[in-house]
Write a protein that binds this DNA or RNA. Structure first.
Length: 762
DNA sequence: GGAAATATATTTTTT
DNA sequence: ATATATTTCC
């Protein structure tokens, strides 16, 4: 016990040892949040307040769940595999597998990821001859997902006009099709579990009685459905509600755009009768100037629960600020600074370059690549998203559930078997006519087309028969062979990587069965192991109690397929070697580095123009900046550029308002400070060793774009009586027709008539 | 069946 | 500018 608690500070200790009631922990960046969470679990178990099976811990990402498990097993001698620790979706998957009948799902239901869902909707529209111009798949996907996130089934959605009535109708068809195929999307995992517990009293009471302590990580990221899910499982409103330990940071809420609702934190305080609100404000990560910058920046937000980070580490170095003349020069400057950091002894992987949007990485990558500097870009294709892996997974899905039409369509003619669009049309007609899955409809297709597709069906059936008693890895290997997938890529000229990936899939299966505790030889198709199932009687009803461990609730194959959908794998490129870390600010959340560059600090980019119009959007951008700043331990660089290529056009941006919100005394300008805006007198700068970049390039661009100038030209700083200072981004028309696109920062882009607008050059 | 041409969008992302 | 999706053509 002493060991568990002795390294905690006052606030942390208080949080860890709170009584068994719901509590809200406001955990600032770098305040030891994960540590508090895991120590709390360990402490609860060690003091005998709960058994390891009575704890439920929820995270958003698999990475966070894994980290919690690792740390916990270092603290406690318990088998963490059997504990209910996981993502919302992972936990729901387990519950639904164990209770698939109560949930109205086939045991072999399969999970669609977002890409699958999008394809599914497109297919649905086509099959029902719905105009995808009038009803764009994207819109539908958003509509369906948000309906589900509000807990609404089609019949419960309010449709007040013709268009919305049609959307609801498609939503209904979507659901029926999902049910027919035995597939569920991500939101459905949550909603199904929620509904199952609402409607099934014994089951609900069973789990409410079981989980007396529920811990939630990144609570500020919960959406409405997740909140209701927690409320239900915790038994809020019952006589004996569970204790919910919610850890989050409203200042780091950066996912409102995908449904996260920070308001859940205040709702939680009230509805869960929180008596203990603890703020973890001691920061163990960053030096003083960095923290001051973060604190002062975020103080500009109005809707906050209120929190101020402090450190014992001393002020440290000032934050370095750089104004570049172009994005290319910005990249070259980064390159030089990185070189000098490395000379001073920093490893590459302790240096991160952050940007607001992915497109910005190009220019930086180009500079790094030319200089032969090792770097790693986060956010690429993940393992299970690769085409060849998706194909292999589709075969495996058909082994377990042949009625998955998406899987069927993906591989029925891959590798090519002479099954073209015409055959598939016939098949789709037959399927619609008989209300069957494509697979089941094959016998109803006559002629050569039917025969060829029949061969495919027999391929699936015979492979299933052959692999029936094989362990998962062997089965996967066999499927790769029988499907001809491997052979296909082996004969393709650029297929070597793909073959390698397919072989990796077999390794992934080996790793998976070992890690999840399936016996090494357990047949891939073997259902839940009987010895893991406890039947509990509750009055007249028998409840099969779900164990957390995967073997208790599903077959190795089903588990592996879930794994493929729920954990798409690492989204970073070549791991391993010491390399510079490039990523968006969003993907940097939760990470920390000794040295951080925040680049592209310009109006329109960061804050992004699409967010700057509304107050809420702007505040989220500011929180994003707060997240970015607090990634840095020792040295922080901020940079912006006068010009930048975006969508094939040169843009002239004002510097970000966020820069002006930082405390002057914490900043150290590396470039001469200019008026916000564009052109300062051409200067020969030490960092500019590339004559084609920087000022010279702008001069040549100006010559190109110059056109008729009456003194108006792109890049000119102007002042407007109403909109204040801005930069001319683009000119169009001439003479009395001349108009200018002007970026006014806070007021956004305006198109003004030059002969009318009262503009002044500055 | 697959390459070439054409259209289209382009903030952030996990499950 | 560029990547991706869809359509068109051989």
């Amino acid at each position: 016990m002493q060991n568990l608690l002795h390294n905690l500070n006052q606030e942390q200790l208080q949080a860890v040892t709170l009584p068994a009631q719901s509590a809200l922990i406001l955990a600032g960046a770098g305040s030891g949040k994960t540590r508090v969470l895991t120590t709390r679990i360990a402490w609860l178990i060690q003091t005998g307040q709960i058994s390891s099976g009575g704890v439920l811990a929820v995270t958003f990402t698999n990475k966070a769940a894994k980290e919690m498990l690792v740390r916990l097993s270092a603290m406690l001698p318990v088998n963490t595999r059997g504990m209910w620790i996981g993502t919302f979706h992972g936990l729901c998957n387990r519950l639904l597998r164990a209770h698939h009948r109560d949930a109205g799902l086939p045991q072999t239901f399969q999970i669609m990821d977002s890409a699958d869902q999008m394809a599914f909707i497109k297919r649905l529209l086509k099959a029902n001859q719905i105009d995808d111009e009038k009803f764009p798949p994207k819109t539908l996907m958003y509509f369906i997902n948000s309906a589900k996130e509000q807990g609404l089934r089609p019949r419960e959605v309010d449709a007040y006009d013709e268009f919305n009535r049609k959307l609801v109708q498609i939503y209904e068809m979507y659901e029926q099709q999902c049910q027919r195929e035995g597939v569920v999307d991500f939101a459905e995992l949550l909603l199904r579990t929620y509904e199952m517990l609402v409607h099934n009293q014994p089951l609900r009471e069973h789990y409410q009685a079981r989980f007396r302590h529920i811990l939630v990580d990144e609570f500020q990221d919960t959406n409405d459905l997740q909140y209701r899910w927690l409320k239900l499982l915790a038994g809020v409103g019952t006589r004996t509600p569970a204790a919910v330990f919610a850890v989050g940071d409203d200042d780091q809420s950066i996912y409102a755009f995908r449904g996260a609702n920070v308001g859940n934190m205040t709702a939680f305080e009230q509805e869960f009768a929180v008596e203990n609100l603890i703020k973890l404000e001691q920061n163990y990560r960053s030096h003083g100037h960095i923290l001051d910058s973060a604190n002062i920046l975020i103080a500009n937000n109005s809707k906050r629960l209120g929190k101020n980070l402090r450190t014992d580490a001393g002020q440290g170095e000032q934050v370095r600020v750089m104004e570049a003349s172009s994005d290319i020069q910005e990249a070259n400057w980064i390159l030089d600074e990185v070189r000098s950091l490395v000379r001073e002894g920093s490893p590459y992987n302790e240096i991160a370059v952050l940007y607001r949007s992915n497109a910005q990485s190009r220019v930086i990558e180009h500079a790094l690549f030319s200089a032969n500097m090792p770097y790693r870009v986060y956010g690429g294709l993940r393992f299970f998203e690769r085409a060849e892996i998706k194909h292999a997974i589709a075969y495996l899905q058909l082994m377990d559930n042949p009625h998955n039409d998406a899987a069927f369509l993906r591989v029925v003619n891959f590798p090519a078997r002479g099954i073209g669009a015409r055959s598939l049309e016939q098949l789709q007609d037959a399927a619609r006519q008989h209300q069957l899955s494509l697979y089941a409809a094959v016998p109803y297709v006559a002629g050569k087309a039917g025969a060829t597709m029949g061969q495919f069906v027999r391929l699936i059936e015979s492979t299933r028969f052959e692999t029936q008693s094989m362990p998962l890895p062997e089965m996967v290997d066999m499927v790769l062979d029988r499907s001809q997938l491997k052979q296909h890529y082996q004969t393709e000229k650029e297929g070597a990587d793909r073959v390698e990936n397919l072989e990796q899939l077999v390794n992934a299966a080996v790793l998976f069965v070992t890690e999840e505790g399936f016996g090494k030889d357990a047949p891939a198709f073997a259902g839940p192991r009987a010895e893991n199932i406890t039947v509990i009687s509750s009055g007249d009803v028998q409840i099969v109690d779900a164990e957390a461990a995967l073997p208790a609730v599903m077959s190795p194959l089903a588990a592996f397929l879930s794994h493929a959908s729920l954990e798409a794998g690492d989204n970073q490129a070549q791991a391993g070697q010491d390399a510079l870390q490039l990523m968006t600010v969003h993907s940097a959340k939760g990470l920390e580095f000794n040295n951080v560059f925040i680049t592209g600090l310009e109006e329109g980019l960061f804050p992004h123009e699409n967010s700057a119009q509304e107050e809420a959007g702007l505040e989220e951008e500011r929180r994003l900046m707060y997240v970015a700043i607090t990634r840095a331990r020792r040295r922080l660089y901020l940079s912006f550029s006068q010009t930048r290529m975006l969508h094939g056009q040169t843009r002239y941006n004002l510097r970000s308002r966020f820069l002006d919100e930082l405390p002057e005394e914490s900043l150290k300008w590396l470039s001469p400070q200019t008026k916000p805006g564009w052109f300062s007198p051409p200067r020969k700068a030490a960092w500019d060793d590339n004559p084609a970049s920087g000022v010279n390039q702008i001069a040549s661009q100006m010559r190109k774009q110059g056109g008729q100038d009456n003194g108006w030209r792109p890049g000119q700083n102007v002042s407007h009586p109403k909109f204040g200072e801005g930069v001319i981004v683009q000119l169009e028309g001439s003479g009395s027709q001349a108009r200018a696109h002007i970026n006014f920062g806070k007021f956004g882009m305006k198109l003004l008539d030059l002969s009318v607008a009262k503009l002044e050059k500055i």
